[in-house]
Design a protein around this nucleic acid. Structure first.
Lengths: 146, 146
DNA sequence: TATTGTTATACTCTATAACTATA
DNA sequence: TATAGTTATAGAGTATAACAATA
């Protein structure tokens, strides 16, 4: 068996812990404070479709749920008028899913709502503190993308 | 009606958005990558009890679920041997909840698992980048506490 | 024969309402 | 009469298995 890589130094583990806790708290506070009339798994699908149209199978894979479960979720969103179903011209088995105008508007409104809580708090910090957060955001974004 | 407070400047809103997205991604990645055999709402209760013993009513309020729902969750944790129920000596209606040794061990193990993913990624950054994250963590922790 | 999507069925988590025991 | 907790019942999300339509 191959030799294991060196474990991170104690201070790195310590930072990992504190940073993880802080991020999870931000995440939870944003969800609670900006709680809306749309369920998390519904909003998550709308965000995927806002990025690009998709199919039930693809959404199921990316959201890590079963195809029947995603089928049900999509049906609910179609019933609410947020998502449109169209037959694929290339493959008769496939239905293409996209956001309706209402769906687009819902994503925009919900995102704005979530940003308000965060923006209000950052507004109370000093410019210097916000600068640190801006540089950290750039690093963090790189970390989670890799 | 009172005059509304000034809205945050555009660059603050922009930072709020990017930082929020980064934190939510960290949160999601940690949960996915370190996915264990314990459900989120179960782990959340164990963490509360690791902090201090509590009651069904108190846990329900703090986790923002109904009392019957929390009663059920606690019963499941008791069945798994992670939580102990004891009658209150002061009030016969109340049952005091606390972690068993297995419950303690579960919290410690799960936390470590979640830290590993984060620590591995931070370990690849430069010392200078980690310093920025350390300062950002201190600021963020203050932000979510307020 | 393989793949896309839906329907059938069951399990879990959630909620509200009703109930028991204690204050 | 009010409070802490449980049980009864129902609604929503998830899963696996079985099915339909198409490739």
């Amino acid at each position: 068996m191959p030799a294991p890589a060196d474990a991170p130094a104690p201070e790195v583990i310590h930072l990992a812990h504190d940073l993880r806790i802080a991020c999870m708290r931000v995440s939870r506070r944003v969800r609670f404070e900006a709680s809306s009339n749309i369920a998390p798994h519904h909003f998550s699908v709308l965000v995927r479709l806002a990025d690009s149209p998709s199919t039930v199978g693809d959404l199921a894979t990316r959201e890590r749920v079963s195809a029947p479960s995603m089928s049900r979720t999509v049906s609910a969103l179609v019933d609410r008028g947020l998502v449109a179903r169209d037959d694929s011209p290339d493959d008769g088995r496939v239905t293409l899913l996209s956001l309706t105008d209402d769906g687009q508007a819902t994503v925009v409104a919900e995102r704005a709502k979530r940003d308000v809580w965060m923006a209000d708090r950052l507004d109370r910090l000093s410019a210097r503190e916000r600068d640190v957060l801006a540089r950290a955001t750039e690093i963090l974004t790189r970390v989670v993308s890799g």
